[in-house]
Design a protein around this nucleic acid. Structure first.
Lengths: 208, 208, 208, 208
DNA sequence: CATGAATGAGACTTCATTCAT
DNA sequence: AATGAATGAAGTCTCATTCAT
């Protein structure tokens, strides 16, 4: 990579990082492009060389941050060596809940965006982490565990994801109806319920 | 009520109704106070006699519209004479899904606000519909049905509500991952799963 | 005076007093008619029954407050039984400086208005204090003291008044170039100088 | 200086000059920022690149105009080759009175601002006219004239300045109590009186 | 590539004044 | 005489975007 190339990358990253800081601290509509370029130490016009407008950088940030979170969760799972699909799902949910609970700013930012729309993008776009493919990883989990079988596994993921992000937002940001710590067991029971709902015959809750 | 009093009410309602129309068609940040007062046929300053700013009227609209929807669903349930708690929940969900499916503008507007925060307000504040108490109505459903018993029934309602509004939004607004029509059966299965998760022993899915 | 008459007077006085308080605490342009009527506990429209606009009430207040100050000084002089024109002038100046030093809000309010323009009004208008005539009082001082004689005594009063109000404002409000306490001896020396400057032959500074 | 630099200076000056015209003809509160930018031929936003608000440009104008006046008087004094401190003071006063009499708009504008506050700024800040130091110039006058000696020379200047600006304003703007032409001799006598009041023993008016 | 001065539409808000009650 | 809801002109200031340098 040429020196010039490196410099460009640096500018883009400076804008990216400062924008995230400002978005999470002052809100999106409370952040102006002036704020961002001032914080990044570049000229106003430079912003437009890298992003179309404020919403462009916001969208790119959401995808990026969500991807990071998922990738971290994936790495965590590998380290933890959890086996079995259901425990793996619970592990991933817990991992992400912990991260979001520690970092409410991030949660607030990606809130309601860590959803199917983002997943589509993550699934379709080339990951920033070379060679990592979210969809494939998910489907691999499933096929590795012969004891489970679901109708519409992608739809199930969507359902769980929406439930988790939505309730988690309420608990972490508003502490309503209770803290995440208190709500967490109920959330896991609800996830189990959903898994059951999507399970095919021969794999259900009651059969021992 | 004096003539003056009636006139005030009319003005407030005109602003309220036009603001809703504009918010749902042009978005909130795409709607200016000028737009609202022009549509309502009142002077700019009049707006500020009734609302503090754009966000004040928005918040009041969200509560109002959510309340209307719930109240309609409640009336619908009474007419339908459905019995049993679980069927009643499914009825209410279906009723609201239908309304929201017909009226995506409304859905988009109250999206992620038809949540616990709103419920709290609806529960605590005096309803605009004299003598109607949401919380009591819900708890009555439960107690009327001797065959079911749940831990933390309010938490269960919260969980279901978050799931429904979140998934419904994605399906109705983005048609992703599929249309509401196609997703609906899976949603109901997920709700059953959640009910099961919150159910106390002796009342579970598999007992025939 | 009828009961209705009394009520009218009360309203006017309430507006007057509250307006003065607000003008001195928030400034004139920082005070709205709404502020005044709210503080006075009357309706917006009522204001216009008594005053033309904000500047009308301001002007009337200035005249009123300046007149009060002068009248107090006059009463103080009578009690003190100071004799001789020059000591009387110094007494009056000191009396007013003390009052203004204690009450910078008043000073700021009448600043640059306790001047010839106001005097004209006070001289010409009928005083609120029945039977009190400022001009005559001043001319009486002069004629009572056979040892002094001035060209243009009214012009001299104007000169002294402008000097006092102008320097006093700077000292009291800005403490610049120094406090009033420190500046006062120099002010008195300057007044003596001016008196000398206006003195006719036979009465000048150097003759012992 | 680059082309861009020159252009910026031009814009700032256009705003400055038009603002002064408008302030003196329509008054400050009668002048809007729209008026200023229209007159200057620049966009509304441009104003805010150079000045914080209307009061910012006003303050900067006052300092600037007062400085100009003093500097002109200083130049006039050098040309006139008047010697002796007292005649120099009278010359300066006359010079400024003439200018202000010719230009009542300027007088009205800097009225009561051509005072100690401004002097402090002029004394402390670097003059716009390179190498010109007001305070030093004044002190030099004093020290050059061995025949005079004053206690607190700066305080004396303050006293004279307040007297001149205050009385001058009344005479020029309101022609009250008389025109400046008629009042001028009395003013000079008052100044002499003040000089006397501040003079140290051995230097007074009457000693021949 | 990078800059940042300039733009100008338009958002928000205030408030003196009126007038029907 | 008193009220206060309604008015709407007028003002301030912001900020995304452009473009000459």
């Amino acid at each position: 990579m040429g020196k010039l190339e490196v410099n460009k990358k640096k500018k883009r990253e400076a804008l990216f990082d400062r924008a995230f800081e400002l978005f999470t601290t002052q809100g999106i509509s409370g952040t102006t492009i002036s704020d961002i370029v001032n914080a990044a130490g570049v000229a106003k016009g430079t912003f437009y060389l890298y992003f179309r407008d404020k919403y462009d950088i916001r969208n790119k940030l959401i995808v990026h941050k969500a991807e990071e979170l998922l990738y971290q969760a994936h790495l965590g799972l590998q380290d933890a060596k959890v086996t079995g699909f259901v425990p793996q799902i619970h592990f991933l949910v817990d991992f992400m809940l912990d991260r979001l609970n520690e970092n409410p700013a991030l949660l607030n930012f990606i809130y309601k965006n860590l959803s199917w729309g983002i997943f589509r993008e993550l699934f379709e776009e080339k990951s920033a982490h070379e060679g990592f493919d979210f969809r494939q990883a998910y489907l691999d989990f499933l096929s590795q565990d012969a004891s489970v079988s679901y109708e519409q596994p992608e739809l199930m993921l969507f359902t769980i994801l929406e439930l988790v992000s939505s309730t988690c937002h309420s608990c972490v940001i508003h502490h309503m109806p209770m803290s995440l710590k208190e709500y967490r067991p109920f959330l896991h029971r609800s996830i189990d319920g959903i898994l059951m709902g999507f399970g095919t015959v021969g794999q259900d809750c009651c059969v021992s």
